[in-house]
Design a protein around this nucleic acid. Sequence first.
DNA 1: CAATAGATTAGAATTGTTCTAAGAACGGAA
DNA 2: TTCCGTTCTTAGAACAATTCTAATCTATTG
Lengths: 122, 122
Amino acid sequence: MGLRPTRQRVALAGLLFRQGDRHVSAESLHDEVTKAGFEVSLATVYNTLHQFTEAGLLQQVVVDAGRSYFDTNIGDHQHFYYADEGELIDIPGAAIAIAGVPTPPKGTAVERVDVIVRIKRA
Amino acid sequence: MGLRPTRQRVALAGLLFRQGDRHVSAESLHDEVTKAGFEVSLATVYNTLHQFTEAGLLQQVVVDAGRSYFDTNIGDHQHFYYADEGELIDIPGAAIAIAGVPTPPKGTAVERVDVIVRIKRA
DNA sequence: CAATAGATTAGAATTGTTCTAAGAACGGAA
DNA sequence: TTCCGTTCTTAGAACAATTCTAATCTATTG
């Protein structure tokens, strides 16, 4: 599945990968691309985000029922989720150490371990 | 906020807490309660699950965009998520050890650390 | 027993996401 | 190049999960 460099995809890729690490929702990226003067439907933003994710360019992080983000940082790392603000923050520095992940049920293998540290106004 | 023992709530609590640990979605619990002969709307199931969660009787686990489960096991534990089947499984035995959780941003405190081990057919 | 305040329920509305069908781009053959 | 079959792309429409709100019900108080 070679992705063609269409107008829509180029615009989205530009916004996503121009600067450093970003966390976007489909909605927020759609706003951005629209404000930048491109006509791209929200459905296309979803399609593109999923294609980029499948291609290994993005990582999807699900934080709440009906709220997911796409992260341009695809390295092995974890997140703070600040529910009050709906904000997702990369955990800086060394990743959290996770020890003793048990063997998964027969016939299955571990694909990924997601860690979300939920934080609150103190 | 004292929860009244209404017909709907009693029926749902019965199903939830009669047997051991359970993972239910709003939908699946609604099916169950309906098949058990009670008339409860799906919205009420949602309301009730959230109230129970707030009361500390349940824990909500979000696994996918638009897919969340409520877990009657409120102890400190983690989950396997078997995406192929959409199935959530408690990690048995000792919990995964998580070390080196960094201090959260100023003015915030850690509320909870969610760990989801995503597994796949090998 | 009436009046009031608060809690409850579920239909309707909203939101987030996915599907599908129409159209566009590509590659090969003539 | 032009035609044609195939594959890819897009976005409107459909869908699904969740939340909101207003009508109703229950408890409490005077």
